[in-house]
Design a protein around this nucleic acid. Sequence first.
DNA 1: CGAATAGTGTCTTTGAGACATTATAGG
DNA 2: CCTATAATGTCTCAAAGACACTATTCG
Lengths: 237, 237
Amino acid sequence: MADDDWEPPSVLLAVDLVILTLRADRLHVLLIERGVEPFAGALALPGGFLRDLREDIPAAARRELAEEAGLVDVPHLEPLGVYGEPGRDPRGRVVSVAHLAIAPRLPEPTAGTDASGARWEPAGPVLSGRAPLAFDHGRIVADGVERARRKLEHSALATAFCGETFTISELQQVYEAVWDVRLDPRNFYRKVQSARGFIVPAGPARRTENGRPARLFTAGPQRALHPPMARAKDLHA
Amino acid sequence: MADDDWEPPSVLLAVDLVILTLRADRLHVLLIERGVEPFAGALALPGGFLRDLREDIPAAARRELAEEAGLVDVPHLEPLGVYGEPGRDPRGRVVSVAHLAIAPRLPEPTAGTDASGARWEPAGPVLSGRAPLAFDHGRIVADGVERARRKLEHSALATAFCGETFTISELQQVYEAVWDVRLDPRNFYRKVQSARGFIVPAGPARRTENGRPARLFTAGPQRALHPPMARAKDLHA
DNA sequence: CGAATAGTGTCTTTGAGACATTATAGG
DNA sequence: CCTATAATGTCTCAAAGACACTATTCG
């Protein structure tokens, strides 16, 4: 099928990062204003090329996470997908391995570090297309948010949006922001407690804000949720 | 952060295929006996390098599906993941985009075509490690089967294992083989019927085997299942 | 007829969701 | 006291699973 002197072509390998967090009860994504062509001045995902042929892909993702976003040790980082369509990058055939990262809410701005142009942007306008991104990064963000939405149902991913300890109502805010729905606090309380290994009490400690102090919890050992946090009647597509 | 004369490295891009089907009520995967080094004589997934820089990745997957497996127009083909660890291929830095394909049960052997060394192997020994594969293909098969298992729950993927028309008990055999469980035929019947848009009656036609003839169905328009085909208490990891 | 598979009905348990009620803080 | 939030309890409905029963083919 192949000529005897045929040789396989080489491509440039990149990693891109969809980093999600919660700010002011809304889902945000970390974006960078590009300083160089192509797409200079446009917003884009943090990311970059593989450094050398010895660097593996998860290491490249963690390196870009630190270099471009100023984040180390995020509570969740996973591969999201491959984006390699010819023409997606005018510089040549670039195949990008997108990753999904979740950051807790506290890391306020991303100042101080090398991550100068980085800033948190609300996810809504990006998803609706009102805030177009460079390259095919708009679609990558959409795929990342969709992945996060699905994983909230069946995994303990929601705890990655919270700090080391959190209250149940903080956890509920994660679900409400990512799914963009309102949930009944009482039913949510029962459901999240009945999912075995999802969250565990964090000592007798408490915290205060406005009403009665809430118990603190930490992420439990369980990755998969039984029963899941079903949100039934939405994705009828 | 980068030297001024730094240039990003190039990698070889490949596609690999996990093609699943049902044979004799057991899950099988299509494997190829390698004729050349590395891993000559070992079993491996069908796949190969990108043909040229203009070929996009889905097209490369379909091309390998035809060239190496002799299959055209499989009912399901989706990207599965990226496998690019340095050292996974002794020929150099090869990054492979794995795909998951589902074939209906009928395509008996894969004879006649260019796909000479191709044959269906039971998935069990591959998953348990008793039948090791070349490269990291054992892990890719495991990831592909895991993906199929999960998607059976929430999508209409099971119909891809069947022919154009099928009976409900044939559909049940798909679930039993992929999940490796026994299901109650009566409850399965009700559940699969109540999932809106999953399967639709295929005319008044019938088929016969041993007992009462069964109604025929075809795949419905719905991709996502409501309610899902929950198999509750399994993956406690 | 009996054997085998297809299809229906019924019961029990479990969880989802609506919503009342009590508990504990600050002002 | 009132307000706000946390935590618990109660009710109803829908779906999961166990299992009896009827229906339709074959030999």
